Amino acid sequence: MQRRHVLCALGGILGAHAFTGAQAQATGLAQFEAFVAHVRQGQAAFTQTVTAPPRQGEPARVRTSRGEFSFWRPDRFRLHYTQPFEQLIVADGQTLWLWDPDLNQVSARAQAQALANTPAALLASAADLRAVRQVFDLREGEPRDGLAWVEVTPKSREGQIQRMAIGWRDGVLAALDVLDGLGQRSELRFGPWRTQGVTAAAFRFQPPSGAEVLRP
């Protein structure tokens, strides 16, 4: 369940683009609009903290993971977890691949179905803010942690995500908070972004020899 939650909440988190001057001081919505219009590729390290709601008589459970994320718009990304265990998620535009090296097991699903109403649908595919608003309700969030925020709620209540918040600093995507339908919260904080040097080859995946491949 822990690893499946990673796929739902983080499979589509995408990159950043630096702006200067007036754009750097823009509202969260303005920075998000510029991201959708101009960002095409990027790569950054991330830290993810997942907090599960407390059970009766027990404190909240917290897990921390680290890795590297890269993307190539539209619809391609690579999420490589390195700590505390290795896991690789690759979206190649058609198929969403999840490889668990410990189990030598690969899961493959149709990308459009797997990522509906998720951060990936929000950030990876949309060509403009009007297209985003067809799927999500957006509003300006209150500034916090030195960031400008956009609050995001899926229009469909059938997905696994209750709401999201996207944090921006000086035109750069800095944070993503996701609350799922079970009350579990995922918080991602991104390191410096590199927007050059990402190649299409990074988003091709071939199941390793001998790996078990699962398809729905």
Rank of each mutant, 00 (worst) to 15 (best):
R3M: 10
R3K: 11
V6I: 08
L7D: 07
C8F: 05
G12C: 07
I13F: 02
T20C: 01
G21Y: 06
A22L: 10
A22T: 07
Q25P: 00
A26D: 11
T27I: 06
T27K: 04
G28L: 07
Q31L: 09
E33G: 10
A34H: 12
A34Q: 15
F35R: 13
V36I: 14
A37G: 01
A37C: 02
H38A: 14
V39H: 06
V39W: 05
V39Y: 06
Q43N: 08
A45E: 15
T47L: 04
T47H: 02
T47E: 09
T49V: 09
T51Y: 03
T51E: 07
P54H: 15
P54A: 14
R55N: 12
Q56P: 11
P59F: 10
A60E: 12
V62W: 08
T64Y: 04
F69L: 13
S70L: 12
D75K: 15
D75V: 10
R76G: 03
R76P: 07
R76E: 08
F77L: 08
R78H: 08
L79G: 04
Y81C: 02
T82H: 03
Q83S: 06
Q83Y: 00
Q83R: 05
L88V: 09
I89S: 05
D92G: 01
Q94C: 00
L96G: 12
L96P: 07
W97F: 15
W99H: 13
W99G: 00
Q105T: 09
V106R: 03
Q111P: 04
A112G: 09
A114P: 05
A116I: 11
N117S: 15
N117W: 14
P119D: 14
A120D: 12
A121H: 14
S125L: 08
S125Y: 10
A126Y: 13
D128V: 05
L129F: 14
R130E: 15
A131T: 09
V132G: 05
R133E: 14
R133T: 12
Q134L: 07
Q134N: 15
L138A: 09
E140A: 14
E140I: 09
G141N: 02
E142R: 03
P143I: 00
D145G: 00
L147F: 00
W149L: 01
W149S: 00
E151M: 01
T153V: 12
P154D: 07
K155N: 11
K155P: 15
E158P: 01
Q162D: 00
Q162H: 00
R163Q: 01
R163W: 01
R163A: 00
G167C: 06
R169L: 11
D170G: 01
V172T: 13
L176T: 11
D177P: 00
L182E: 13
L182T: 08
L182F: 12
G183P: 11
Q184W: 03
Q184P: 01
R185H: 02
S186L: 13
S186R: 01
L188H: 02
R189M: 01
R189A: 02
F190A: 02
G191P: 03
G191V: 01
G191C: 03
R194T: 10
T195K: 09
Q196M: 05
Q196S: 14
V198K: 09
A200E: 08
A202K: 04
A202N: 03
F203T: 06
R204W: 04
R204A: 15
F205L: 08
Q206I: 06
Q206K: 10
G210F: 14
V213G: 02
V213P: 03
V213K: 02
R215N: 15
P216A: 13
